[in-house]
Write a protein that binds this DNA or RNA. Structure first.
Lengths: 333, 333
DNA sequence: TTGTAAGCGTTATCAA
DNA sequence: TTGATAACGCTTACAA
């Protein structure tokens, strides 16, 4: 790989002049500029951003740390983040933490070494607090996405779990459901807790009690949904509807129900938070509170880059609204 | 951020000794080693991989360039690549080229500047040849994934388009279909061409002619599938089955058929290459030739890292077999 | 308008 | 076993 010095020599100028041409950072004689550019072309010269980063203390590298890229919510979010990062001249490193705080920490340390300019993170849970404090200590800008962390002051892009849950629960109740199970993710994740809160609120509003046997805490994975349903099926008095706190839980739940010969929505209605994107195109099946996942990515990158640029002052929080989409997985009883 | 020199000073050693402790690159007195490690801990020191990269000429950064992360085939592939990269101590930058050769080039140049150690790329098409030659000129190791490029000698991880197409077409024919449409991606993409070839071969084997009006060339996007179906629906003699060259085409096609009031598989059968992963868990609908997308990612990273390490000599090609999964989108007539 | 010198944080090399 | 020095490729600050 040729260096700025190779270019300089061939163009009969100093390295500084080449640097100025590359960055347009100062006036350069038109003649020399053309000559330099010609040589750069000829040498197929690409400036070493490693060296550049070393002196400038910026890498133009961002990181996106999510639990699992194969979750459509995060897939689309990643696409949004990548598009926006590219538009603004940044590249994106991505990592999957699998809802695991240890793995999350490993990544964060890797990223600290990489000297990324900033981090977008969907924290694995409240315990991520410590991990994020590390970033704060190191003054590495970050934005948390999708999941809030109590007591942590930082830039945030969140959904509205309460609103979405109200939409979903009111829908189920309007359809005549009274025994509604709630499949929760870990209670150490804000979205799980808020959706439980919303669930309780709506039931109360309609004079209904929470039946503890219908609230199952598991984790935001397909297997979590399957396990939760196995648990529910042991009840003598089955629920008529299941509200899953996220899409993976719902898919796992439906899969498990089918394996036990139960049909959705004939035997049980199933609804959840977060859409399935492509899946919904093919076969609009699941009733969901859909979140604008692409915008989550775009907005988060915007906040992050503002923060990096230093133009941001106070911490900002963006809340993106969910939208109830009624499809075939829920029915009147 | 503290530097190796800060650590050195506090531990009363030279920077070199710290470096040796970090990398385990040479014997260091046990006492000193402990002292240095303690200071590193205390300072929360993370070595600057920028500086490291500058002297070592390696960044431990890989890039994954695909057309669209929201395509389940690539989503899962990305997950496989990221897992394997992480396991081997590499980080992964990702980019979406949207089947666009210009965008692909932009990315590649960005990556050249970033001095990634290697690139995993699903080329946008045969014209990517030039883009990849640039990498070869620059001696930047790369592996092409999923799509072959005629005349290009390099490491490759490919599927078996002919085999998969034979499986699919034999299935349709066994079900009694004779008028089968082929929805092709761009003919400048190897997989499109090979699947067309397989389509022709199987028809011929059964004494059937290719009806040119049933072969529609479009692009590997949802909109491509929609447009292709609009085109087909103008025929007076409709096909009884559609074979879509990839999953996006199939989903787009089905969506469009539904909007015209046609039901799948009642009115038309639809089958395609590549599965829909999560979607298939929820609702096993589409009959497909599924490819082991996760392994595509894992294998590609392995080839790439062998190449980077210099342990690879001749170019290698890995072919991963497809598997026919018969579901409800195709039926006997 | 252009160039020189120093420095960014690390490691290879050679010397002690 | 440890350290001094130079170098990696670039940009900032200053000088010409």
């Amino acid at each position: 790989m040729s260096t700025i010095l190779d270019v300089a020599r061939l163009a009969n100028v100093s390295a500084m002049t080449v640097s100025r041409v590359i960055n347009g950072s100062a006036r350069v004689n038109e003649q020399t500029r053309l000559r330099v550019q010609e040589v750069m072309q000829q040498l197929q010269f690409y400036p070493n951003s490693n060296a550049r980063g070393l002196v400038l203390k910026e890498t133009r590298l961002l990181a996106l740390l999510i639990s699992d890229i194969t979750n459509p919510f995060f897939t689309t979010l990643a696409r949004g983040a990548e598009d926006e990062a590219k538009r603004l001249g940044y590249r994106l490193i991505f990592g999957n933490s699998d809802e695991n705080i240890g793995k999350e920490k490993e990544y964060l340390e890797m990223l600290l070494s990489t000297r990324v300019d900033g981090v977008l993170i969907a924290p694995s849970g409240d315990d991520s607090f410590e991990n994020l404090q590390l970033l704060q200590n190191k003054e590495l800008p970050f934005v948390i996405i999708d999941r809030d962390i109590p007591g942590l002051s930082c830039d945030k892009v969140l959904g509205d779990s309460l609103l979405g849950t109200h939409q979903i629960m009111e829908h189920l109740i309007a359809q005549g459901h009274r025994r509604i199970a709630y499949l929760s993710g870990s209670k150490h994740i804000s979205t799980s807790r808020l959706r439980l809160q919303g669930y309780t609120e709506v039931l109360a509003k309609h004079g209904l009690q929470v039946d503890p046997s219908l609230v199952v805490e598991t984790n935001y994975k397909l297997s979590g949904g399957q396990e939760a349903v196995q648990h529910l099926l042991q009840l003598t008095n089955l629920p008529t509807a299941i509200f899953a706190a996220n899409n993976f839980l719902a898919v796992g739940a439906i899969k498990e129900l089918r394996e036990h010969g139960l049909r959705v929505p004939d035997d049980l209605s199933v609804v959840c938070f977060d859409d399935l994107d492509l899946l919904s195109d093919l076969n609009p099946f699941l009733t969901v509170a859909a979140q604008p996942s692409y915008d989550f990515g775009v907005k988060a990158v915007e906040l992050l880059i503002d923060r990096i640029g230093g133009s941001a002052t106070d911490h900002r929080q963006i809340v993106l609204p969910p939208q109830l989409i009624i499809r075939r997985s829920s029915r009147s009883i």
